[in-house]
């Protein structure tokens, strides 16, 4: 174990999690949603959002060919518009990591692999370990693990802590994102608790959802998680990354999320080292808005490649 925590330490850590007031959270969110994005700052925001995307395909029907297409798109978002960044990472199942790694070459784009019996997490711990090791051995730069939501809801925080810490131990050089699947958790208090727990257990990033369950990355959930990251930073000086995934499909939402990060955490988090969007359809909306800002005209969706 990298960090050793006794169960009483874990209980103490959870007990310290502040309560979250839902109404207050909604008010704060409403304020962010009245912000207006214009001109050069909008263009800067759109490009920033593009550079933070984990371009994702997580389907049973994924094939190497589909993954290769996605990897090309990751490097060439819209070649007609010069000066666009590449996305941050491509996110795939462990079986597709090797293909993605090959296709991305030395582009600088990371390969993220989901693991630990994504999306349900309902597998024996040994299986989760093998799942993760397989992804790492095939070259995954980042591991997106899921927590055992059932054990969390049952109050077995020690289990969750051990699970995260054990996977973290495997990720010697890879960065670990911990997915909570907040759509299956009961309240914002629970979201805050799991955020605090995952961070002390070694998460490099905390991530809202698998994308398989609705609701996913809602503003209240994201704001609650950002609060946990902020408090951890204020206590320890250590930065933790944030990845909302699922449900952020429009540019406007993405820009509002970025502004929330800026206001709650600060400018330092506004890079793809510390902030990611887990998304598949967001990229094209950002591209359409970007073109609109440059040319003053909306183009048809037909002009933007789907893969």
């Amino acid at each position: 174990m990298l960090t050793s925590f006794s169960s009483s330490d874990i209980a103490a850590s959870i007990a310290k999690s502040p309560t979250v007031d839902q109404i207050g959270i909604l008010e704060r969110v409403a304020r962010i949603q009245t912000r207006s994005f214009k001109g050069a700052s909008k263009i800067q925001g759109l490009k920033m959002a593009l550079s933070m995307i984990d371009l994702t395909t997580l389907e049973g029907k994924d094939t190497p060919s589909k993954v290769r297409q996605l990897c090309y798109k990751a490097q060439h978002l819209h070649d007609q518009a010069p000066g666009l960044p590449m996305v941050a990472a491509v996110c795939v199942y462990p079986t597709m990591v090797k293909e993605a790694k090959k296709a991305l070459g030395n582009s600088g784009i990371k390969v993220a692999s989901v693991s630990t019996a994504f999306p349900s997490g309902q597998a024996p711990f040994e299986v989760k370990k093998i799942d993760t090791l397989y992804a790492l051995e095939n070259g995954a730069d980042e591991i997106d693990m899921v927590i055992s939501r059932g054990r969390f809801l049952a109050g077995d925080y020690q289990f969750i802590y051990d699970e995260i810490a054990a996977i973290k131990e495997l990720c010697t050089s890879a960065r670990l994102k911990v997915i909570f699947e907040t759509g299956e958790l009961d309240s914002l208090d629970q979201v805050r608790k799991i955020s605090d727990l995952a961070i002390v257990a070694g998460a490099d990033f905390i991530k809202t959802s698998t994308g398989k369950i609705q609701p996913a990355a809602t503003f209240p959930v994201v704001l609650t998680m950002l609060g946990s990251i902020k408090d951890h930073f204020d206590r320890t000086g250590q930065m933790i990354g944030m990845k909302p995934a699922g449900g952020i499909s429009s540019s406007k939402l993405a820009l509002q999320h970025l502004l929330l990060v800026k206001e709650v955490l600060g400018e330092a988090w506004l890079t793809n080292e510390w902030y990611r969007f887990g998304a598949s359809s967001l990229a094209n909306d950002l591209l359409m808005q970007y073109q609109k800002q440059l040319t003053g005209k909306y183009q048809s969706a037909a002009y933007f490649s789907i893969d």
């Binding site: 912000r35 207006s36 994005f37 214009k38 001109g39 050069a40 700052s41 909008k42 800067q44 925001g45 920033m48 970025l258 502004l259 800026k262 400018e267 506004l270 890079t271 793809n272 080292e273």
Partner: peptide, 12 residues
């Protein structure tokens, strides 16, 4: 990776 600050422009 560093970059210049992101500030909102006036929206009058």
């Amino acid at each position: 990776m560093s970059q210049k600050n992101w500030n909102l422009e006036p929206s009058l």
